[in-house]
Computed example of a mutant assay.
Amino acid sequence: MRNNWTVASILDQLIEKQIAFACWFFPNESRLGLIVGNASDVVFFDRFDQLNGEAGFVFAPYCITEKSPVILLQSNTFFEDFSQEDSLDLAGFEPFSKNEDTGIYEFQSKEDYLELIGKTVTEIREGALSKVIISRQIPTKRTDTSLGSTFLQLHDQTPNAFTYLVNLPVAGIWMGATPEILIKSDGEQFETVSLAGTQVRKSDADEYYWSTKDIEEQAFVSRYMLDVFFNFDIHKYKTKGPETLESGKVAHLKTSFFFPAEKIGKCMGNFIADLHPTPAVCGLPKDLAAEFIQKNEEHERKYYTGYLGPWRLNQQVALFVNLRCMEITSAEFILYVGGGITSRSIPEKEWDETNQKAKTLLSVINPEG
């Protein structure tokens, strides 16, 4: 039986002592995974395919830069089901140097965001782009509330999401609750997911109806998945969906793909490098969308829309796309949210969609708001 107060206290102490760690709950599970390491147990990579043959907890960015490398926390101490009975000698770990926190951020106004969405829609209608994901940051003043307790509350409120809290060199402190699998293995087969389209979550009695825009957006991502399969000679696979996935305050359209594990067993890093970023976080055509984002988004995404999770820990691979997440600085919670823009997008509705997505996190860090 997990004592939430004790666990929250331990997580807070790990943060206070600058000890590298990652903790997480898998969707619909109550077991808390926890990996803790010394500063020397943290490895940095400048290519996604360098994960081949490695093992640990991976925290990867949307786009690799000098300030946002792929981070792997190797397994010094690993618990698949951490509880208060487990002994964890915090004095035995070597802390890492505190990350530089300038506290200076410039956030986009609603007016500027709407202008960018309008520009994106025009670009799509007139050019070769089919879809572009445009994101924004939402700053919220940080309180002195326990981050460990906030994390456990986030899990309680979004039990069907992958919820996590990490404290890592370079990246700093991040927390999130993401519904999207990048790739997951049960040993015999891999699963990857095409997820797109968003609407407000309904009550149990109400049915979901999806717009042409949402269906089209989700189909873009599914077609991309099949192109990656072809590149790795994956021709036999199973699908499930499209179906509605509820997560936090919103719902999405989801299609799951399953294929034999032996197809990428020795080249998982290469497969991930080809798969990421998917159109669900970037757009289509991928190269043109990535170029548009780089030129027009004013902020750095860092680890938002990257991926994270256990990587060959006890031979398990379970990576999730880093959505519904926030970066935690000394003064603020910086939420990252985004939406898929197509030729049918309406700027004001896109603004509303990002606000809906933010409610999953805002409900635990600012419950009175």
Rank of each mutant, 00 (worst) to 15 (best):
M326E: 10
M326L: 13
T329K: 08
L319C: 15
G338Y: 13
I334N: 06
G309K: 00
L308H: 02
T329A: 08
R324N: 12
V321N: 04
Y303N: 09
F320W: 06
V321E: 09
P310A: 01
E327F: 03
G338N: 07
Q294S: 11
L323Q: 03
C325P: 03
Y336E: 12
N296D: 03
S330D: 15
I334F: 02
M326P: 06
L313W: 01
L335P: 10
V337E: 07
A318S: 14
S330H: 15
Y307T: 04
K302T: 09
I328N: 11
W311R: 00
E297H: 06
K295P: 10
N322D: 13
R312Q: 11
I328Q: 10
F333W: 13
G306R: 08
W311V: 00
T329W: 12
R312S: 06
L323K: 07
R312V: 09
V337F: 01
W311P: 08
P310H: 03
Q294F: 06
L323C: 10
E327N: 12
R301Q: 07
M326I: 05
Y307M: 03
L335Y: 11
M326S: 10
E298V: 13
A318C: 03
R312I: 00
K295I: 01
Y307V: 02
V337Y: 02
E327G: 06
L308F: 11
L335N: 14
A318T: 07
R312H: 15
N322T: 13
Y307F: 14
K295H: 13
L313P: 00
Y303T: 09
Q294V: 06
I334M: 05
T329Y: 08
Y336L: 07
E298S: 14
L319D: 04
V317N: 08
N322W: 03
V317I: 07
L319H: 01
L335D: 09
R324Q: 11
L308T: 05
G306N: 01
G309R: 04
V337C: 07
G309S: 08
A331C: 13
K302F: 02
N322C: 11
Y336I: 06
I334V: 14
L313H: 00
F320Q: 08
Y307H: 00
V317W: 04
T305F: 03
M326T: 10
E327H: 15
V337P: 12
K295E: 10
N296E: 06
Y303H: 07
I334W: 12
A331W: 04
Q315E: 10
L323E: 05
W311A: 01
N322Y: 05
E332A: 12
V321K: 04
Y307C: 10
Y336N: 14
C325V: 03
L323Y: 06
L335I: 15
A318D: 15
C325W: 07
H299E: 02
T305C: 06
E300H: 13
L323T: 07
N322A: 15
Q315A: 07
Y307W: 09
